[in-house]
């Protein structure tokens, strides 16, 4: 001995690191990922591998090109790639996956300063980009257990809910297990809920955001249509539960305080219902999250808590 280390307090720190948090998210996403492979077979696996791989490589190359510190190790690029992959339908082309992931990582995240500095959710924005650019990325594909095991483009439950007759809607059980047309990872509500429980149990996210988001959609749908079954279908259709658990809970693009996050979730719910019931697109989850991302800093400011013992500045 002879050299004492000197630093300022605190001298101990938690074991929870950014990469551990990201690893927990990947674990939570693994069940919906497995479900997607069960439901859609190899095309789903290909999409997942392509998106995750190109997200990681995009970040790697961007950091190399701009001579920045390498940040792939924090696993956040892998998370973005995985979240994006599971929100795409099975017939999306491999090159489209590459373009979408690269857009999400380079344009939405890295150009704004990298992890922690982007204002919009990379996965949600990447999905919107693909949806607007390529027709395939917006539709839904039937699972291996429908249409004689052929993966064909079919009307999604959300599109069916837009019609007046609701003909051809899958049963509620099929909706819960994911046996319906749509994106590969958004269907199996069961798998997503298990991921949700994992994230809450590991204290990665608080339960409020997903519950408030989904709850708002349920209540508003019920009020507008006055039909309980319709409201339940609205909750399970499209990417609502998936986005509520994995996109609306993103730390970087949501308010930092608990109250702010509740308001954020509420806003997402309202916008989703407005788009779904009154807009021209069948689905509106990604748009809702993107719009609320933009409002986040203002919500955060308005939801500041008065500190214990804080007096208003003008009163002093």
């Amino acid at each position: 001995m002879n050299k004492l280390t000197v630093s300022t307090s605190p001298h101990i720190q938690t074991k929870v690191t950014t990469s551990r948090i990201m690893a927990d998210v990947i674990i939570a996403l693994s069940l919906p990922a497995i479900a997607s492979v069960v439901l859609y077979g190899l095309p789903a696996l290909l999409i997942i591998v392509t998106c995750v791989g190109s997200a990681i490589i995009s970040e790697l190359l961007f950091n190399l090109a701009t001579k920045r510190q390498q940040t792939v190790g924090d696993l956040s690029a892998a998370v973005t790639g995985l979240i994006l992959a599971l929100s795409l339908p099975a017939d999306v082309k491999v090159w489209q996956c590459v373009v979408g992931s690269a857009f999400a990582i380079v344009v939405v995240k890295c150009l704004f300063g990298g992890l922690g500095h982007n204002f919009a959710n990379p996965a949600a924005t990447g999905r919107i980009f693909l949806f607007l650019a390529f027709a395939e990325a917006g539709g839904g594909v039937s699972t291996r257990f429908m249409n004689e095991a052929e993966l064909v483009t079919s009307a999604t439950p959300l599109e069916l809910l837009k019609t007046s007759t609701f003909e051809g809607l899958p049963s509620l059980l099929d909706m819960f297990l994911g046996n319906r047309a749509g994106a590969i990872g958004e269907g199996c509500i069961l798998a997503i809920l298990i991921g949700f429980v994992w994230l809450v149990a590991r204290r990665v996210i608080k339960w409020e955001t997903p519950v408030i988001y989904v709850g708002t959609v349920f209540l508003l749908s019920l009020i507008v249509k006055g039909d309980l079954e319709f409201a339940i279908y609205q909750v399970m259709a499209g990417g609502l539960v998936y986005a509520a658990v994995f996109m609306a809970t993103d730390y970087v693009t949501t308010p930092i305080n608990r109250a702010g996050r509740a308001v954020f979730a509420l806003g997402c719910g309202v916008i989703t219902v407005l788009i779904r019931l009154f807009g021209s697109y069948p689905g509106g989850v990604s748009f809702a999250i993107l719009i609320m991302n933009i409002l986040s800093p203002y919500i955060e400011r308005l939801c500041r808590r008065r500190p214990l013992g804080g007096v208003k500045n003008d009163k002093k």
Partner: peptide
Amino acid sequence: TEADARRREPTPCIHCGRCVAACPIGLN
């Protein structure tokens, strides 16, 4: 011990809000 005396290198803030939730006074 020397190993425990060392703090990890800082990485970018991910805005997770853990500090806000932890502050007894309710500061940000």
